[in-house]
């Protein structure tokens, strides 16, 4: 009887402790996303409302002035377009080129394969800042500064992507290639019709994380683009935020819009974000 009661008390205590720790976790999760809630809140407030009571998380009346203002104070549509062209265009080319290179390295036999693979791996160790200055000069010589080709082409392949896809292609059974080969398919047909369809999850992960990395990229577009018409969202927002007397609602509206595509993609395809980031470390 007494022992029963005691274990009952212990169980009760353990349950309370578990409930308390879940409560702490929930509060921590809310605190984690609070900045984003606040961002949306400020984007929907008038400056007068914000200055009157900054302690209020959500506006008392919803106003779309901020969204209107960011369109007039910045060439905002152009910035969104630039960011889409830069991130989307680069990612499409990159996934294609990386998959071709990864396919050659994983499935084809040719002289120098090991040497080329090691060379590609070696470039992974080098931080991007080392190449930034010479690449800047190369782009200057090519007259590619402040252009889309200057933004896109130097980033249109990635050693990490080649490595990741090579590793994935190696896991596919060899018999597939051989069967297709006997059926008369050439190596490009095998790549396109056999290997690529099987690699969809890996390709989707690479696509999602590369798109995210480029959409969020800061230093590269900051250095390559020099006029507001060629900037991408991150650097344009930053420059906008450092102006004196900045319109907070407009700034937060801009921040919210630049986050929106990734937030939507994240909600729809969280699995690919998680897989891609967890396997490559790219973020």
């Amino acid at each position: 009887m007494a022992a029963d009661a005691r274990s009952g008390v212990a169980r009760g205590l353990r349950r309370t402790a578990a409930a308390a720790s879940w409560l702490v976790l929930i509060v921590a999760a809310l605190a984690t996303i609070l900045p984003f809630v606040w961002m949306v809140g400020v984007s929907l407030r008038t400056p007068a409302d914000l200055y009157a009571d900054p302690a209020q998380l959500w506006p008392s009346t919803i106003s779309l002035d901020g969204y209107h203002a960011v369109l007039t104070q910045l060439p905002f549509v152009r910035l969104v377009f630039n960011t889409f062209v830069f991130a989307g265009g680069t990612t499409v080319i990159l996934v294609f080129l990386d998959s071709l290179a990864g396919y050659a390295l994983a499935r084809l036999r040719f002289r120098g394969r090991q040497a080329i693979f090691l060379l590609i791996l070696a470039t992974l160790m080098v931080p991007f800042q080392v190449t930034l200055i010479p690449v800047f000069l190369t782009l200057f010589d090519l007259d590619w500064l402040n252009t889309f080709q200057g933004l896109i082409i130097p980033r249109a392949t990635s050693a990490l992507g080649i490595f990741m896809l090579r590793q994935f292609f190696l896991t596919l059974p060899r018999e597939l290639d051989e069967a297709a080969h006997i059926d008369g398919a050439n190596s490009f047909q095998i790549y396109w019709r056999v290997i690529m369809p099987l690699a969809k999850p890996a390709l989707a992960s690479l696509f999602v994380i590369q798109f995210m990395a480029l959409w969020n990229d800061f230093l590269w577009p900051l250095v390559v683009s020099s006029t507001i018409e060629m900037r991408t969202l991150p650097s344009a927002l930053t420059l906008f935020s450092s102006q004196s007397g900045v319109d907070h609602a407009a700034l937060m509206a801009g921040a919210a819009i630049s986050l929106a595509p990734l937030a939507v993609a994240f909600l729809l395809a969280q699995r690919f974000f998680v897989q891609g980031i967890a396997t490559t470390g790219l973020k």
């Binding site: 929930i26 969202l233 650097s235 700034l251 990734l262 937030a263 969280q270």
Partner: peptide, 30 residues
């Protein structure tokens, strides 16, 4: 909860930097 803790990873440093800068602002910050 995992999604909530993971979400800041998806946002750019520029966006979170701008948001935090004003979140910590002495005049308008929360």
């Amino acid at each position: 909860l995992r999604s909530a803790f993971f979400f800041p990873t998806v946002a750019s440093f520029a966006v979170v930097g701008v948001v935090w800068k004003f979140l910590l602002d002495p005049q308008v910050g929360l």
